[in-house]
Design a protein around this nucleic acid. Structure first.
Lengths: 99, 99
DNA sequence: TTGCAATATAAAGATATTTGAATGTATTTG
DNA sequence: CAAATACATTCAAATATCTTTATATTGCAA
């Protein structure tokens, strides 16, 4: 992309998404949700983080349209729905596997 | 990627990179540098931002190994060298073009 | 060596994030 | 309905980030 196109492009939304992903816990949550939706307590157990912390991060991810929540009885299952985020998470997964 | 793998993976570095990209000005800088290296004043003129601001962002990008600086007389040419960042910038470019 | 252009760095103030602790809400089960 | 489980929200304190302004450095040319 050249200078002129950059000048007239708005990267606000993309930057916001990347910023949200730019936190180790949130990035782990997102990557962990790629293969399958998970509920809050499973995520918390897996990452060894307290429930409110996970909920707070999920609230952010939800607010930005990165994940969607779906209730299943007592549990709430989260899954990633944002196209750009799906792409990035898959790139990261590939990088991890090739190490 | 499943839960167990997430549990044992370290996403610190990747998160750091994404966080750095998660700022509109830095993201524009990075995307603008994909096609060709540019010097500080060109970037500043293009983005309409003051020089110290650009320099500071470039310093961050440099510190994280995202860009490299090369002096050319009075000017210093910056270019993107980080593989993951190159990939992400290209994805964003494609998304922009397809709008 | 003096001056200028390009870039870098520093300090300060404003703003935003992150986290933990406490509390609130919704749903199922007895 | 009451208790228990799973999750969400709120608030405040600590920390980090961003922007602006001022100043320093570096290289080149006269």
């Amino acid at each position: 992309m050249d200078l002129k196109r950059i000048k007239n492009s708005d990267f606000t939304e993309e930057a916001e998404i990347l910023k949200i992903l730019g936190h180790p816990t949130r990035l782990k949550i997102v990557c962990g949700l790629i293969e399958q939706g998970l509920c809050v307590s499973d995520i918390g157990d897996c990452l060894g983080e307290p429930q409110p912390k996970i909920s707070q991060h999920l609230a952010l991810l939800r607010a930005k349209g990165i994940v969607k929540a779906e209730r299943e009885g007592l549990n709430i299952r989260y899954r990633v729905v944002h196209p750009l985020v799906l792409k990035i998470a898959k790139i990261l997964e590939r990088e991890k596997l090739s190490d």
